[in-house]
Design a protein around this nucleic acid. Structure first.
Lengths: 125, 125
DNA sequence: GCTTTACATATGTAATTTGCATATAATGGC
DNA sequence: GCCATTATATGCAAATTACATATGTAAAGC
């Protein structure tokens, strides 16, 4: 069923790059294990990388010296590092928000799922 | 910065409806406080409600007897309640996944955020 | 009574994102 | 040379989202 993080791909890419420079294909390989997604779209990864580059979060350099076909090697910029840190904060906020929501939604045990809802309870800030 | 839950709107609507029947405008009012979003699109809420109805998760009934203009009052079905429970599980999985990711990304304290990630490749200052 | 404002639902559509397919090209093994 | 693999990239339809606008009723003000 549908419950995924929106634009989780970008922070995941930054996370992988924070671990060292890499090229797209390599990132593509390591992404599923990180995000838990079964299928990661090839084209969208490259598009995301170009987007991150346009935003100044990564820099790329063509490397023909490495074995195999020419690769575009991406490296985090300091802006990218800062953005990643900010994204982590944001994700943490999201996680905490989810926790609050889940606690709310599950309060009263299973009556949310089985019994008619209580007439009073409303989630107030 | 961008880090939101995708399709969080539907479970949020189900959550509000689990608390008792309501009409669209009312849900629209209570939604931002629940999801933390500043602006909730009016049209999309009604579209989401119709979607939920087509999936059999909610039922609606026009009420002209209530004060004010005629309202369409939505009520959770048992399928809706089940779907909500399932969504909660899904969200919980997401939350736990986020926790794992954050622990990973933050391991080693703040060095992810401040220090060069690895000696292998860093853009020279 | 008539006008204005608030309530309530709904449609239209442009922009963005996603998923899926396909193109291109270089390398290495045979 | 031929072919599978590695590597990057584009094209496009479908789905989603954001923004605007339309429609109609009821309450409030004068």
């Amino acid at each position: 069923m549908r419950a995924r993080v929106e634009r989780f791909g970008e922070p995941a890419l930054l996370f992988l790059l924070a671990d060292g420079s890499a090229h797209g294909y390599e990132l593509l390989d390591r992404l599923p294990a990180l995000t838990g997604e079964e299928r990661v779209d090839v084209g969208n990864v490259y598009r995301a990388l170009r987007g991150l580059e346009q935003e100044g979060f990564v820099e790329s350099e063509w490397r023909a010296d490495l074995p195999g076909p020419a690769k575009r090697t991406y490296t985090l910029t300091s802006e990218g590092r800062a953005a990643f840190a900010s994204w982590l904060d944001s994700l943490e906020g999201l996680r905490d928000g989810l926790t609050v929501f889940l606690d709310h939604a599950r309060k009263g045990g299973d009556d949310v799922r089985t019994a008619p809802p209580s007439p009073v309870a409303s989630p107030e800030p």
